[in-house]
Design a protein around this nucleic acid. Structure first.
Lengths: 127, 127
DNA sequence: ACCATATGATTCGGCGACCGAATGATATGG
DNA sequence: CCATATCATTCGGTCGCCGAATCATATGGT
């Protein structure tokens, strides 16, 4: 199975899809508006609306009106949302292991190190 | 610019899209039927029909009836098709360089080596 | 030799993820 | 207090893909 298919299947079991992970990851820890999320994820605001509709239906997320600027809607994870995020992280780790499983430990470490440097070089945050 | 966007733009300049590269790469060198291509690319036969329609319109490809089994249509690259393939290879190399450009030579080599091992572990052919 | 069945290509309708323009609500500066 | 900007949303469209149906050709059993 292609790695992304396994990842998607793992997520489907808990009701979400790969694209929702970006929202769960970003909204966890920081209070971001929908536009913030759109910019960070690299997608148009209408896509964020769509994803949040789905996540809200799942009870994973709340849209909270920003008291300081009532145009903005800040995205907050619920307990369910944090649980889904943990599922997603585990699913990603599993997909990674599957992708690397044919390599010996040294080669696996080399891939991880290379990918980390590559991500860092492109401004990705590995917190 | 995201690496894939640069790649796509480079290809668009010569009239093709990323998905066509798979066909150009596979059909170059071996005589494959449409179904062969579908299996190798990991896509349904109807998608191959669509891609070949586009490549045939460009004059990049010919569908040749297999004399031994007239149901099969073997895909042949034309001179134009081989030229497009060279463009694609150059565009891919350029995208790779862009992706790696923030790293020093040693780190770049490490990424390339890691990716090659990863590909090999998953049965990819780097000929 | 003939027909049932299998296989390759094609067509067609639909889906999921995305974009862009238009709309409505709220904020802000002159 | 109004013109303008900004945020969220809605709506229509595009792109790449899939799956089922169809048509042509091949093949094996009787």
């Amino acid at each position: 199975m292609i790695a992304t298919a396994g990842f998607a299947a793992e997520l489907a079991a808990v009701g979400i899809k790969p694209r929702h992970c970006a929202v769960l990851e970003l909204a966890r820890g920081q209070a971001l508006s929908q536009l913030d999320i759109a910019h960070r994820v690299g997608v148009t605001p209408s896509v964020v609306v769509d994803m949040l509709d789905e996540l809200e239906d799942l009870g994973a997320v709340r849209r909270v009106a920003d008291p300081g600027d009532r145009r903005r809607r800040v995205v907050e994870l619920t307990t369910k949302g944090r649980s889904l995020h943990r599922h997603a992280v585990r699913a990603a780790a599993k997909a990674d292991r599957g992708l690397l499983s044919g390599l010996d430990d040294r080669a696996q470490a080399a891939v991880r190190a290379s990918m980390a440097r590559l991500g860092a070089a492109h401004g990705l945050d590995f917190s």
